[in-house]
Design a protein around this nucleic acid. Structure first.
Length: 843
RNA sequence: GCCCCUAUAGCCCAAUCGGUAGAGGCAGACGACUUAAAAUCGUCCGAGUCAGGGUUCGAGUCCCUGUGGGGGUACCA
């Protein structure tokens, strides 16, 4: 094998061989010298574009997912540069986080060293990959110069009343020994990081009050319509989960305070037959006090049982309903009925008020519960029976709640109203009596930002002995992380920072008495919630970002990244942007004007993973095929949002195409500047159609189509060289130059080499796209089809300027058409000159 | 369960406003070059658009129903 390769390369030791490795070695230092992607010139008068790729978490080397996102993001960045824009395309490192800490614990080393070593390695790969980043703006979120501003941001939220501490049930990851945000718990109840089954734990933690922004986060999604993938918009809408309804206040026998419940169906209030409270809500424990010892015991047992059930059991939807009767009664405010109160875990403590009015006839969950415990079911909405066999649709018989629309019955003043009329009427009645009001509820919960881990941003709060909270004064920021040496980083359920005695024990800023620093660190999603602003002035040590620069560059014009961040990161960044807007730092309210999601790179239909051993390694692919071929493959594989199965695409094919393009450029014999107008018209038409179409296709993210069209152009050029006008034809040069310009988006090394070979100075990345010559876009003749009753019967070569009348006459004169019409009677003739005639006949 | 996306050649994918189903690639066949092979160049082969119904002069494209695949969500009252 090796022998054969040697002989092959010695035989073709001339410049026509496409040697990607030599190109990579040649151009990287030249670009370093030229700095074509710098955005540091303040006098640059070109219009600006901010193109941002989601920054990577530095673990190990780059992987194929990185290869995809940075290939596609770079197409966009390079495209806008060609279109005359001053494009800011920065990159940095999301370098705080658990993997570094876990790796450090495993190896007994410092997370800092591990992280920065990884960054060094990945940066090398990233530079080789030739994405057009402005490296002068590189940031690391784990640098004190960065996380200082996380702390500043925290204090801004704190001052605004948007950061607060509360005790509550939290998601606890028993493997990583830390709390998780709701957003970090997967649908199956496991941690998105460790994969461990998440358990509930009661802790006092810091929260950001994102729920205050729920309406705006939801409503402002409308502005992004058409610019963000509709899937992401929908996921965000579902996540926020706004429900419109009403609070209804129930008197409780033997209790002073009323109990409010939230319902989206106030129209069914007359159908309530019992009340259910969440067993883990404070209300349940309160209600059970003073009841019989048996009930108290049953409740205590039930609470224990609920606490022990795993997340999986809790989430099984077909799980039988469980609960205990508390032997207490609520009074229905509209009809005075006594409603028995039950505790059951199908009611959630942290949604609404942790209690519901149960209307079994019209709510499936309530019906399931009622049937399990033999509670009454009362229909209050007459819903038309759609059972075909005429069987009853009575929920107590069928077990199916009547969820549809209908007319109110058994509902006093609402009787006879439609559902849509009854809802507002019921709210009016409640409001008039002071027993309720229209209200909204959200699925979204506040953002839990405390983490009991080391490798993150310290929370800049000092706790006095008396329990008071004191923010660290801004001028004392950053609160530096203590040295990891000597600290026990092993997960033990409390923050490792608490073990750094010198660090944690500080005087109370108010009176100098002993106090302690908050020992938790922030969720790393805080770091990434505003990083796009830090790129604007990454070295400014006087402020987090410069609002003037923000006005120039932000918001981000095009954001590129994986759909895995569709909810978490994007929601947090949107929230923080709105907060900074409200605090007067920003003029805009949405951080990312447009979003492009790329799919995943998979293998043989399966997600790549270490455990499955089906990993394609970035470095191996780049070594084997070259950067350009890997990048081109990413663009050509299909629409960006589709997954790329690496087993189904062909970097070999991409490399072949690049070699083919390279040979075409090599064959050009005409001099730079030769007038293309004298060249072969057929090839020029292909070139100019490409020049005309490529920009629109690129802006629509149809990169695969642009590449296909480019292949077509190269094929046409080859044909002209070999069997047409020949290599000296000026149209061949024009086509080759166009190819180099287009390849700049997908294969920057080869593009640069071709550009040089064609007699120009680097860098091709700074050369403007050419406008197509309109006269070459109009074909000399077009094929018009003639249909009879929709079937193609003839084709006519006609002028593109032909009129409807002329074309119709020509079509009717056709023998083939006349034959098809036969004896039939012409009913209608549709003419779409110059492309089509359709003759409708009746036979 | 609910919500959303999707289905075009053996495979990956194209197809502006509804107007000739094919741009491109992979795989395959044949030929040229070569002592031969690789590389290269050339030629060719290839679906009637998941199924059924509807709207229309005309449907891959719009509407309805179903099936397959993918994703989100999970007792949110």
């Amino acid at each position: 094998m090796a022998h054969e390769q040697d002989s092959a390369s010695s035989r073709h030791d001339d410049e026509e061989v496409y040697d990607f490795s030599a190109l990579q070695k040649k151009w990287l230092p030249i670009w370093d010298e030229l700095q074509p992607f710098s955005t540091s010139n303040p006098d640059d008068e070109r219009p600006r574009k901010y193109v941002l790729d989601m920054f990577p978490y530095p673990s190990g080397d780059l992987h194929m997912g990185h290869a995809e996102v940075y290939a596609l993001g770079d197409v966009v960045a390079r495209y806008w540069r060609q279109q005359g824009f001053n494009v800011m395309h920065p990159i940095g490192w999301d370098s705080f986080g658990l993997p570094a800490e876990n790796a450090a614990i495993k190896r007994g080393i410092d997370p800092r060293g591990w992280t920065y070593d990884n960054i060094a390695q990945q940066k090398k790969s990233m530079r080789l990959y030739a994405a057009s980043f402005d490296w002068e703006r590189e940031i690391h979120t784990s640098d004190p110069e960065y996380y200082k501003w996380n702390q500043w941001l925290f204090l801004e939220l704190y001052k605004a009343g948007l950061a607060y501490r509360k005790e509550s049930w939290v998601n606890w990851d028993p493997v990583d020994q830390t709390v998780l945000a709701n957003e970090q718990v997967l649908a199956d109840g496991t941690s998105e990081r460790s994969g461990a089954m998440v358990v509930k734990k009661r802790l006092t933690q810091w929260y950001f009050k994102i729920t205050d922004y729920a309406d705006r986060l939801l409503d402002d999604l409308d502005q992004l319509e058409g610019h963000w993938p509709s899937k992401v918009l929908q996921m965000q809408r579902n996540w926020i989960g706004r429900s419109i309804g009403a609070d209804v206040e129930f008197e409780i026998e033997g209790r002073e305070e009323r109990v409010p419940v939230f319902t989206t169906r106030p129209d069914t209030l007359w159908g309530a037959t019992f009340m259910v409270v969440a067993p883990d809500a404070a209300l349940a424990s309160e209600l059970v006090e003073g009841t019989s010892p048996e009930v108290q015991q049953r409740f205590a047992d039930y609470l224990t049982e609920v606490g022990h059930s795993s997340e999986i059991e809790r989430q099984a939807t077909d799980r039988p309903k469980t609960g205990v009767f508390l032997e207490r009664y609520a009074i229905n405010p509209v009809n005075g009925e006594r409603l028995p109160i039950w505790a059951a875990d199908y009611v959630l403590a942290d949604y609404g008020h942790g209690a519901v009015m149960a209307v079994p006839a019209h709510d499936q969950r309530d019906l399931d519960f009622a049937r399990t415990f033999d509670l009454p079911v009362r229909v209050v909405l007459d819903v038309p029976n759609t059972n075909e066999d005429g069987a009853s649709n009575d929920p107590s018989e069928t077990g199916v709640a009547l969820a549809g629309d209908g007319t109110l019955i058994n509902s006093g003043p609402l009787d006879g109203l439609r559902k849509a009329e009854a809802v507002p009427r019921a709210i009016e009645i409640l409001e008039a009596e002071g027993r309720g009001r229209a209200t909204k509820n959200y699925r979204l919960r506040d953002w839990l930002i405390s983490r009991q881990r080391y490798w993150g941003t310290p929370i800049p709060i000092i706790h006095g002995e008396d329990g008071t909270e004191h923010p660290v004064p801004v001028e004392q920021l950053p609160v530096l992380l203590p040295d990891a040496a000597g600290l026990d980083l092993k997960p033990k359920g409390t923050s490792p920072l608490g073990g750094a005695a010198d660090w944690v024990n500080v005087p109370n800023p108010v009176d100098g008495t002993p106090a302690k620093r908050d020992a938790d660190t922030m969720d790393t999603f805080v770091d990434s919630s505003w990083y796009f602003l830090r790129f604007l002035n990454p070295n400014d040590d006087s402020q987090a970002f410069d609002p003037k620069e923000a006005e120039k560059w932000a918001p981000v014009d095009q954001y590129v990244g994986g759909v895995e961040h569709a909810i978490l990161h994007l929601l947090y960044a949107r929230f923080i942007t709105k907060v900074l807007h409200d605090l007067g730092y920003l003029k805009f309210t949405e951080p990312f004007k447009a979003l492009l999601n790329q799919g995943m790179v998979i293998l043989d239909g399966a997600k790549m993973s270490k455990s499955k051993g089906n990993i394609v390694f970035f470095t191996e692919e780049v070594d084997k095929h070259g950067v350009d071929a890997v990048r081109l493959t990413m663009a050509f594989a299909g629409p960006p949002e589709d997954d790329i199965d690496w087993a189904e695409v062909s970097p070999v094919g991409s490399a072949k195409f690049l070699a083919r393009a390279w040979r075409v450029a090599n064959d050009v014999t005409s001099e730079p500047g030769v007038d293309p107008a004298t060249g072969d018209t057929a090839l020029r038409r292909v070139t100019h159609r490409f020049l005309a179409d490529a920009p629109g296709l690129t802006e629509a993210f149809k990169f695969n189509v642009v590449v296909a069209r480019l292949m077509e152009l190269v094929n046409a050029t080859r044909k002209t060289i070999d069997s047409g006008a020949g290599a000296a034809d000026p149209a061949v040069r024009e086509a080759a130059e166009t190819t180099a310009l287009a390849l700049n988006l997908f294969a920057p090394y080869l593009a640069e080499e071709m550009w040089e070979k064609l007699g120009f100075e680097p860098s091709v990345a700074l050369v403007q796209w050419r406008t197509a010559d309109e006269s070459l876009l109009v074909a000399e003749s077009v094929t018009a089809i003639v249909q009879v009753n929709g079937k193609v019967r003839d084709r006519l070569e006609v002028s593109p300027q032909i009129t409807d009348a002329e074309l119709e006459a020509l079509a009717l004169a056709s023998d083939a058409v006349q034959k098809a019409i036969g004896e039939g009677e012409i009913v209608k003739v549709i003419v779409r000159a110059p492309k089509l005639v359709n003759i409708a006949i009746r036979s």
